[in-house]
Design a protein around this nucleic acid. Structure first.
Ligand code: MN
Ligand code: MN
Ligand code: MN
Ligand code: MN
Lengths: 220, 220
DNA sequence: TAAAATTTTTAGATTTACCTAAAAATAAAA
DNA sequence: TTTTATTTTTAGGTAAATCTAAAAATTTTA
């Protein structure tokens, strides 16, 4: 069994590995809000436990065992987020920190029953997929809104940033999961994007457009 | 804010103080499954934080601040137990260990919303009262079944033992919360008690009768 | 490819929550 | 009221997860 802290490391490494195959010490340190020296210590420990493969100075990768453990935590995190939003009426920008704690509660029974209670949801309040109890989930294929061209349309199905200010901002703009959007213009000057959503024309910054994930209706 | 460990100490001290005013080091050690020397260390720390009053060799008592913190954890523990039983269909003998972890999740918002979601329950699956958000709750007055005389009757409203084997045993005997019982005989030989429950005559050991709490219909 | 910059690791400490063994205080028994 | 038993505390140490400062390796730049 892993400690609370080890679980956090595994999850962070898992998420970082979605972007780069070899996860760097500094990247982990930044995410976990600690110093690189501490990360090196923990990596050694995880390597001894067979949860990561580690070659000095070459970064880490999760072993199958480590990946399994990480996915298990991701599953718990996302199921709890669904619980908080669907049952306790939290907003999608309020759930992250609490889920960060709840994900470490260890009881297989608890999470299976929670899954059932929630109706076996397939994705969390941010559109992220929820692994099933065997750790399997469909690799969803998103396009970043920023990558769409003028005339392209699609549905908002995810966000790649979970900070409260960002999510509150989207909410205010009416850009929530499931909304249909169409790109009507891209401003040369600052790269901001003009989109049509709910029959309204709005302008969003490049920065915002980068973090909205669209399941495309196909290019125009 | 208190650590996970400090919270456990506060809760244990609170429960022990329900029986004896001055809580002893050894009693805490036994409950918390640690050594008396470790308890002394922790008590000193809690005293420094103003959570307990401590006089060397004289045991501890919770300060108002400490009591408040302890009641808060008890509230969380019991609300989570209600959640597990009412919403996730756990049995009353299965909830304790998980609640032991869940009680440490810190988010005021979470617990208030959970309370509301559960319909502001007044007691947990074992009949124990749930403090409101200000820490107030009615001191329920129970009589131990063992203290009833022949002919006395009442309703099962609590248990003073939460171990799974004990609770499973009660379940099997049909002795669950809310059941009406009447004492029909007390065996001289072993002190076992014959009771009438759901129109059936059953015999329970002294040991069992000691841990069943009755709200009496009045003596006969 | 040598110098400079960056990344990562080691060495040595600190803090928290434990432990064992032994000493000190208190309570119970003789 | 001694002696004995029990309870509690102190002293000194360990393991987990962190830190700072400095050394070593790797990567980038010139
Ligand atoms: Mn976490
Ligand atoms: Mn999420
Ligand atoms: Mn606990
Ligand atoms: Mn209970």
């Amino acid at each position: 069994m892993q400690s609370f802290t080890e679980e956090n490391y595994l999850k962070i490494i898992y998420h970082l590995a979605e972007k780069t195959s070899n996860v760097q010490t500094n990247a982990i340190a930044e995410q976990i809000q600690t110093k690189p020296a501490s990360v090196t210590d923990m990596i050694k420990k995880l390597a001894e436990k067979g949860l990561v493969d580690y070659v000095k100075y070459q970064g880490v990768t999760l072993t199958e065992k480590g990946k399994h453990a990480a996915v298990d935590i991701v599953r718990k995190h996302r199921l709890w987020e669904v619980f908080l939003v669907d049952k306790l009426n939290f907003k999608w920008d309020e759930v992250h920190d609490v889920a960060e704690e709840l994900e470490h509660i260890r009881s297989v029974d608890l999470i299976e029953r929670l899954d059932e209670f929630l109706g076996f949801p397939k994705s969390d309040p941010h559109g992220d997929p929820i692994p099933d109890k065997n750790g399997r989930f469909a690799k969803t294929q998103f396009i970043k809104l920023i990558e769409l061209g003028i005339g392209d349309s699609g549905t908002i199905t995810g966000v790649s940033q979970h900070s409260s200010p960002f999510l509150k901002h989207l909410e205010k703009l009416g850009l929530t999961l499931g909304k249909q959007i169409q790109v009507s213009d891209v401003t040369d000057f600052d790269g901001s994007v003009e989109i049509l959503v709910a029959e309204k024309q709005i302008n969003i910054s490049r920065e915002v457009a980068k973090h909205i994930l669209i399941s495309s209706n196909g290019k125009n």
